[in-house]
Nucleic acid binder design. Structure first.
Lengths: 344, 344
DNA sequence: ACATTGTATGTGATCGATCCCACAAATAGA
DNA sequence: TCTATTTGTGGGATCGATCACATACAATGT
């Protein structure tokens, strides 16, 4: 059984060490004007009693609000594995500054989002990051403007808040260009259709990647063929079926660019059923670089990296720099680089 | 540009509402002894100024330490998608009690773990959850005993701390029994070999699932055949290769039980290359119910659920119940139920 | 020997809330 | 009408730290 010692305060320490509060405080804050003798005496007592200064008291007096650092509100980032790297990016950047992070998962519920915001504001966080699971427009409750805030992987519909999002165009371009550079000229594209929450188009991911796809084709003087572009509702069956459809075309593609890695899963399954081999018969490229799929599949999947980690990190650093108060809100784009494996 | 209002304190509110601090405090805490007239007057001012009571001050006075609720330390749970549901389980249970959660990712670094612990203790969290990415023994630094703590998905080597872990045996049993019930009698088992961090055996997951496998076989009077059991080092190549090895046996299995869903990925790939169909030619069962693989694969994978969400939830509830101080440390096991899809 | 500087320590005020007690005003009971 | 009781409000003490200032004592310079 645990015996948790009663909490001591600075007065207890002072008394036991035979000094005053002030002296203990000076020791705690590494103030120079303390004799070595006294310092070690005080430190001994602190050590023995497992004393830790009360953060609340310290915070109240100094108003150095790194009490908790930042708050992170997410829709479903915590619930789902896709974007965990955003959390990691933010957490590591914060930790490097000696701060910790409050995490709240608010789902897609407006009331819950408002309550989360309230909870974080009450706790006097220095800033807030609102992170979305997938790239989308969001509308945040009014109190959001009462604290420095950055949106990651999403943006305010009215652009009134600073946000950081993936440069989808760069990703679609990188993927397509890579396929083209390997000699393919007929490239199927199973683009993202419906979103997990049926958000109405335009879907930034879908549009952006398509634009990148077109741009790369143009660069190689390959005419854009709309029959090669399909839209998946992101169910396994649909991913499977759309691949079959593509391969049934009069001139079937020799490469397929999948809207995300999950789509590639269905694509692999369909190609296997058709007796086609990857990458010899058909090349496949994914999107997300969702490690456990991309790196777990056989053959390992060449795909495009979503910059989750970088977005989380950027958000923290931007907030810490104090720039939120100085700049007009803007949108920061981060590149989506290609990750080469063995499916092309 | 944001115009963030200067923070007001209770005195400001009192003055503007023409009442005293005490009255404002009573309004804030829903104390009955306030006239409706005064109450609305005060609430109006609060609303207008976006006033929020200072958590530190309140906390210091009342010592109701739901300042932050709990702290969650993880090794790599945040970094990786496998066990995110643990965080969600804990967060939701905590939120239901009006508390928020501090999250720190300490990696596998001992110093970092100690620093995280320290950071949380300083902030006077009510309790701590230490969550591991995969089921394993851990050794925590001494200060861990200074606060109520529960380990999830891991356990103290010396069993000195309460922990909650998956019942691996039940999972191995459920998977194998399901396969047997569908008439299969030769069941290959690609068990987990090396851990991500090369923790020395015994690996709880590996041992437990094997025991469950044997137990189910015994129940169906099927003799245990060691040549059907292989160990994967969890690389994609190895997962692929071991499946080929199994299928090359003089009497190849008609079903394969994979140590986790990632392994199933390699297994699917190998079976495709052999021209074998799932589940008609060979049945496959995974472990983890890692949604995006299990539900994204074609055909969707029948697998065993790891009770991440339940573990997180259980940990919070146990901590909140105050039982940590009353009970001797013990280990709570949570069942791993089968999730049927279409690969058997 | 006395003023001067510097080092080490103690002390009261302070941060922003809550809580308890004192007290005023309104209502009820005798 | 006068005393009880209830209801609403104000203000001092308090939580645990930091900080600015006061003070004690030693070391140094003239």
């Amino acid at each position: 059984m645990n015996t948790l010692s009663r909490r001591h305060n600075i007065e207890d320490i002072a008394e036991m060490a035979g000094v005053s509060r002030g002296t203990v405080s000076r020791v705690l804050n590494n103030h120079p004007a303390v004799s070595d003798e006294t310092r070690t005496k005080v430190l001994d007592v602190i050590e023995k009693l497992n004393y830790r200064p009360n953060f609340s008291a310290r915070h109240m007096r100094t108003d150095s609000s790194n009490l908790v650092g930042f708050g992170l509100i997410t829709d479903e980032v915590i619930t789902t594995p896709y974007a965990v790297d955003m959390i990691r990016g933010a957490q590591e950047a914060l930790w490097a500054r000696g701060k910790v992070m409050l995490v709240v998962n608010a789902g897609y519920d407006t009331q819950m989002t408002e309550a989360s915001l309230e909870a974080l504001l009450e706790r006097r966080v220095e800033g807030i990051i609102y992170a979305a699971m997938y790239h989308r427009p969001v509308e945040l409750p009014a109190p959001a403007t009462q604290v420095p805030i950055v949106l990651t992987n999403c943006f305010a519909v009215d652009r009134s808040l600073t946000s950081v999002v993936p440069d989808e165009v760069s990703g679609g371009y990188a993927a397509t260009k890579h396929i083209l550079s390997r000699g393919h000229r007929r490239i199927g594209f199973i683009n993202l259709g419906a979103t997990p929450r049926n958000v109405p188009p335009p879907l930034p991911a879908s549009n952006g990647r398509l634009e990148g796809y077109k741009r790369a084709l143009a660069e190689y003087d390959v005419p854009f063929d709309p029959t090669l572009v399909h839209y998946t509702n992101q169910t396994p069956e649909n991913n499977y079926q759309l691949t079959l459809d593509l391969m049934k075309l009069p001139q079937p593609p020799t490469a397929i660019f999948c809207g995300n890695d999950r789509t590639a899963l269905g694509c692999y399954g369909a190609l296997a059923d058709l007796g086609l081999r990857i990458p010899d018969d058909v090349a496949v490229v994914g999107f997300d670089n969702f490690k456990d799929i991309a790196d777990g599949l056989w053959p390992p999947l060449t795909t495009v990296q979503l910059p989750h980690y970088e977005m989380g990190k950027w958000a923290v650093e931007f907030l810490l720099s104090g720039s939120v108060l100085e700049n007009e809100p803007f949108q920061k784009l981060i590149d989506c680089p290609l990750v080469e494996r063995e499916s092309v």
